[in-house]
Design a protein around this nucleic acid. Structure first.
Lengths: 122, 122
DNA sequence: ATATCACTTAGAGTTTACTTCAAGTCAATA
DNA sequence: TATTGACTTGAAGTAAACTCTAAGTGATAT
């Protein structure tokens, strides 16, 4: 699969895909003799993972570390698990903060709908 | 209340507080004759709001717009409501994406715990 | 009286994650 | 044959949100 198709499929730009590769999150993607990238199903799976995690705000540096360990094989299982647990914690905290803001927005909008606004409260 | 106390209370730096003021999110904070900021309860309420929304990833530019409208009084009620609804939608989408990533992390960690790992799946 | 500390300002610097640019290759189509 | 379009590269540029620096003021502690 060619880079432009992958980009379309995942709603990423080709620049972003090359950037991820440069950063070591994915690939190196095999290239045909014309030098053009050809993404395998495995590559796509990895991009799926990266996209999901990036959408949740996990940092490139973590993903890079994790995926590098992944490529090193079984001996890194323990460290990988630790990283995941750590990231889950960070993510949970963010989720909670966002839920709180979401609830607050809902409450606020409700006040606007009911026309009960306090001049001093945002 | 002095800037350093406010910073401590909200776990922000004094630089961030001055930055927010410069950007028009809060204040202008009244200053004593020595030129030192003195935060009122109203200022703190506003910082509370800003902090909550920033923690959820809402952009400075939105907060600035919203709070400026707020300061313009009742005639901006309709527009303010619209902004809140729009931001709620953005926030909901992010929340869903994060929940998905969170579930995925949980699932993954579970696989690590049960020692069922697929060489090809991150 | 002198040093320390919290504060002030304007403005420059940093980090993260892209995004754009310039210059070039290669295959296919008008 | 010429030009169009997708690809390649390395490197420079950008946006958002801080974060830090330098130079200075003024009140308090030794």
């Amino acid at each position: 699969m060619q880079i432009s198709e992958v980009a379309k499929e995942f709603d990423l730009t080709t620049d972003t895909l090359r950037y991820y590769e440069r950063e070591g999150l994915i690939g190196p993607i095999a290239k045909g003799k014309n030098g053009i990238r050809n993404y395998t199903e495995n590559d796509l799976q990895r991009i799926r993972f990266v996209k999901c995690m990036r959408a949740a705000g996990l940092e490139i540096s973590f993903l890079k570390r994790y995926l590098q360990l992944f490529d090193e094989g079984d001996k890194t299982v323990k460290e990988r698990r630790e990283i995941l647990v750590e990231q889950r914690k960070i993510l949970k905290e963010k989720l909670d903060a966002m839920q709180e803001a979401y609830d607050r927005l809902n409450y606020k909008i409700d006040l606007y709908d009911k026309n009960i606004l306090d001049k001093n409260l945002m």
